Amino acid sequence: MRLPRSRPLRIALGVALCIGGILGFLPVLGFWMIPLGLIVLSVDVAPVRRFRRRLAVRWENRRRRWKGARSDG
């Protein structure tokens, strides 16, 4: 998916996705919109980018641990 070149438009899109995700109990909208909105926001907003990076590192560490435990067994 290509993101808009305009920084304000990207931020507005990310915020709109997060708000739509909060209303995920309604038809059409879904809770899947929250992570997608955070990914879009992480392009321009440093705290969200740091959160995404930490989450990615944790995910990779757990995946490696799980693969290592699985191959040992």
Score class of each variant (00 low, 15 high):
Ile19Asp: 02
Ala16Tyr: 06
Ala16Met: 04
Leu3His: 03
Ala46Asn: 08
Ala46Tyr: 07
Pro27Asn: 03
Pro47Met: 05
Met33Tyr: 14
Leu9Gly: 09
Arg53Val: 11
Arg64Ser: 07
Ala56Trp: 09
Leu17Phe: 10
Arg54Asp: 08
Gly68Cys: 00
Val43Thr: 13
Ser71Asn: 01
Ile39Asn: 03
Arg50Tyr: 09
Gly21Ala: 07
Phe31Trp: 15
Trp59Asn: 00
Trp66Ile: 12
Leu3Asn: 11
Asp72Cys: 06
Cys18Pro: 00
Leu41Gln: 12
Ile39Arg: 14
Asp44Asn: 15
Leu26Glu: 09
Pro4Gly: 00
Arg63Gly: 04
Leu17Thr: 00
Gly20Asn: 01
Arg49Lys: 15
Val28Phe: 15
Val40Arg: 08
Pro4Asn: 06
Leu13Val: 03
Leu38Thr: 00
Phe51His: 08
Gly20Ser: 11
Phe25Cys: 09
Ile19Met: 13
Arg7Asn: 15
Gly68Met: 09
Ala69Lys: 11
Met1Trp: 09
Trp32Ile: 14
Gly68Thr: 02
Val40Trp: 09
Cys18Asp: 07
Gly24Trp: 10
Ile34Gln: 08
Arg70Asp: 05
Ala56Pro: 02
Gly24Arg: 10
Leu26Thr: 02
Leu26Asn: 00
Ala56Gln: 05
Ala46Val: 14
Leu23Ile: 11
Arg62Gln: 10
Pro27Trp: 05
Met33Val: 04
Met33Trp: 13
Phe31His: 13
Gly37His: 07
Arg10Met: 04
Val28Gly: 09
Gly68Trp: 04
Ser71His: 00
Asn61Thr: 10
Leu29Ser: 06
Pro4Met: 14
Ile34Pro: 07
Lys67Cys: 03
Asp44Lys: 06
Gly24Lys: 08
Gly37Phe: 14
Leu23His: 13
Met1Lys: 05
